[in-house]
């Protein structure tokens, strides 16, 4: 068991922005791997035929979203010294580290710990405020919003209630030219809401919006 190796676990909070918005989850994994190597932090590898570095990213951010609240857990040798600056200068410019903290080795996987997430969505095309309010209110007021979702594998269709994933939706006060929406969704395993679901309801294509995750809150 790899747990037998002496190691420590670091939780890094970071922002993902600019060019990195367009980089997917799997590629981000490689970026972390190389950045950590560049920073000279010895990663712990899983045991087995294809040893993999132990890196866990909290929750996959859809392509095109930026975020101020991403988390990654990494396992490194216990004696390795680290710092925010040391790591930062080895990262591509679209990743900004805000904090590093040591967490218990036995703490559950990040992916299972999400509770809810907050987003700020900027609508790039012009849209009247009252129309926006109306749409958001109709979603908030609905009893339930049964929707279908195709599973990636085998194209099976699953139904789910979008309404249960929504915690809050409201228009933000105007600041600049574009309208902005605050969105809060559950972010639990198997029950994760995302802004693109709402955009779809409003018939706004994803490329006509700028989405930023502003917070990812873990279970207490």
């Amino acid at each position: 068991m790899s747990e037998a190796l002496p190691q420590k676990r670091l939780r890094i909070k970071f922002a993902k922005e600019n060019a990195l918005r367009y980089i997917g989850h799997l590629d981000l994994h490689h970026i972390w791997q190389r950045s950590i190597r560049r920073a000279g932090l010895p990663l712990i590898y899983s045991q087995g035929f294809h040893p993999q570095p132990k890196i866990q990213i909290a929750s996959a951010l859809p392509l095109g979203f930026s975020s101020r609240a991403e988390f990654v857990d990494i396992w490194i040798s216990p004696e390795a010294e680290y710092s925010v600056e040391g790591l930062q200068k080895n990262l591509p410019e679209g990743i900004k580290v805000s904090s590093i903290e040591e967490v218990d080795l036995r703490a559950p996987a990040l992916q299972t710990q999400g509770d809810y997430a907050e987003y700020e969505v900027t609508i790039l095309d012009e849209i009247p405020a009252d129309e926006l309010d109306l749409k958001l209110a109709s979603l908030m007021d609905a009893e339930s919003l049964p929707r279908e979702k195709k599973k990636k594998k085998r194209g099976k269709v699953r139904t789910f209630d979008l309404r249960t994933l929504i915690l809050d939706l409201h228009r933000l006060p105007l600041d600049g030219e574009n309208e902005r929406i605050y969105m809060r969704f559950t972010a639990r395993e198997g029950a994760t809401g995302r802004p693109d679901m709402i955009l779809k309801e409003m018939e706004i294509p994803i490329e006509a919006a700028r989405v930023e995750r502003t917070a990812l809150v873990f279970k207490a």
Partner: peptide, 19 residues
């Protein structure tokens, strides 16, 4: 670019920002 990148495959090709 911001208005079109999400409509194409692998937009990461077109944005730079590499280490």
């Amino acid at each position: 670019l911001e208005r079109v990148l999400l409509t194409v495959q692998k937009p990461g090709r077109y944005v730079g920002g590499e280490y």
